[in-house]
Amino acid sequence: MFDLIDYKAVLVIALIFIPLEQLLPLHAGQSATRRHWLNDVFYLLFNGIVIKFGMLLLVGAAMLVVRRVVPEALPAAVQSQPSWLQAIEALLVADIGFYLAHRAFHAVPFLWRFHAIHHSIEEMDWLAAHRVHPVDQILTKSASFLPLFALGFSGEAVLIYVLIYHWQSVFIHSNTRIKFGPLRWLIASPQFHHWHHANDRQAYDKNFAAQLPVLDLIGGTLFMPQHMPEKYGLDEPVPQLYHRQLVYPFVTTAEPAAPIAEASPAAAKPE
């Protein structure tokens, strides 16, 4: 359904967000070529190939089992609805899957080792959205897509969700000072997601949803003060080159993650 690498989409995203971050910067002193930006360009151009193949295998195998346990009447009921309603439902269902998987990556020590790659970002911008370990993305995205396929959502509804997810993912990581006012409680924004990346004890293990902050409100993990974070990243040492980040989860000697109800997912973070 999608090309492995849509270079036109990459170009459009770059042409939108690079000027936007210059016109409405959150951190005005941050350069477009901030530290390790070339590493994240590599993620942008090549990580998607591994992720898409991994998802194809994982979701495909899981669907062989799911088809046996999901009653045929359930997908039929979903497909009987108009596409616009399916799209809304798909967004909610997929984000619940994302929330649960994302929270697990913070709570389970072995999974945190993969997710720490994403949290090693120290300067937030549109490129930061792409620095994610393939294992992290394969499992998290599969948790979003598997329920959509299992419930029989239409191709149009799934496509709308995919477009919203990808554009919003870039936007919420971007170095922009755009805020949504009262809508910030309904739609994820940089104000919401930057706190997820903050190296600030109050913000540890908060704001797991991708699109819908209300899921964090329900889950007791919402944290969104009016001011913005001053510091991002981890005190836990994480390598900054792609090939080293790929093997980091398997060789790291970092301390186990703390439970969500306590402090940080990485015990190496400061008090």
Rank of each mutant, 00 (worst) to 15 (best):
I5K: 08
K52I: 13
V59A: 07
P229L: 00
Y204F: 15
R177S: 13
L127W: 05
K8M: 12
V162Y: 05
V50N: 00
G155M: 13
F105M: 06
L146V: 07
I218E: 08
H102P: 02
Q137V: 01
F46N: 09
S83W: 01
P270A: 02
Y161G: 04
I138L: 06
H36S: 09
R177I: 08
E21T: 14
L100D: 03
S154N: 11
V69W: 12
T221K: 05
S154E: 11
W112V: 05
V65E: 02
A268N: 10
I178F: 11
P225K: 04
P19E: 09
A268C: 06
P249W: 11
V158C: 05
E89V: 03
S174H: 09
Q30T: 12
V132H: 01
L215F: 14
P229G: 00
L4A: 11
L111Y: 10
A150P: 09
Q22E: 14
V59R: 01
L111E: 10
V135E: 01
V50S: 02
I18D: 03
Q211E: 09
D205A: 13
A268T: 12
V238M: 04
S189R: 03
N39I: 00
E89S: 08
I96P: 02
L57S: 06
K8F: 15
T33R: 14
I178K: 06
I160K: 04
D40N: 08
G54K: 07
I117C: 01
I96C: 02
R34S: 15
L146N: 07
Q226F: 04
F53W: 05
A254F: 10
A9M: 15
N175D: 11
D95L: 01
Q202V: 15
L15G: 07
E236F: 12
Q168A: 07
E122S: 13
N47K: 05
N175M: 06
S83Y: 00
F153S: 13
L139Q: 09
V170L: 00
V78L: 03
L217K: 15
L151C: 13
V135R: 02
I117A: 01
F145Q: 10
L57P: 00
P239D: 10
H102I: 01
G48Y: 07
A14S: 14
G60R: 03
P259L: 02
P75G: 06
I5T: 10
W195D: 08
A188F: 09
G60H: 03
I187G: 05
K141G: 03
Q30Y: 10
V41Q: 03
F114A: 02
N199L: 14
G220T: 12
W195A: 07
E89D: 07
V158H: 07
Q22M: 14
A267D: 10
